[in-house]
């Protein structure tokens, strides 16, 4: 079963996924039933019911505006695929 509400090509374009046409077709076919299953929820009358977005009834976990130590730059740039002495380096972006 496939679901027309899922456009794999569009999702791939948004997520910068580079899939072959065969892979696209396969995911369209395989993900269809999963989306259709989740869509079963819309068969219920949910009028007036707030979506459950948080697992626990907790709010206001806020930080005071106090400075904490940052990382040193050498550590920060160590994992970068490419870096100058001060910045992450990447191919030139043309505005």
């Amino acid at each position: 079963m496939s679901d027309s509400s899922l456009d794999v090509a569009h999702v791939c374009a948004l997520a910068h996924f580079d899939l072959s046409p065969e892979e696209m077709a396969r995911f369209q076919r395989e993900l269809g039933p999963i989306v259709a299953y989740v869509n079963k929820l819309s068969e219920l009358d949910l009028t007036g019911i707030e979506p459950t977005q948080y697992g626990q009834p907790v709010a206001n976990v806020l930080r005071e505006d106090v400075v904490e130590p940052s990382l040193d730059r050498e550590t920060v740039l160590r994992n970068a695929p490419d870096a100058s002495e001060t910045e992450f380096r990447m191919p030139r972006i043309v505005e």
């Binding site: 106090v66 940052s70 001060t86 910045e87």
Partner: peptide, 21 residues
């Protein structure tokens, strides 16, 4: 004084990539 979601200092005068976590 600090960033929105972490305690890094906000300053336009710091060296690049020194107020990061």
């Amino acid at each position: 004084r600090t960033k929105m979601f972490c305690g890094c200092l906000l300053s336009t005068e710091s060296e690049p990539n020194t107020n990061v976590c």
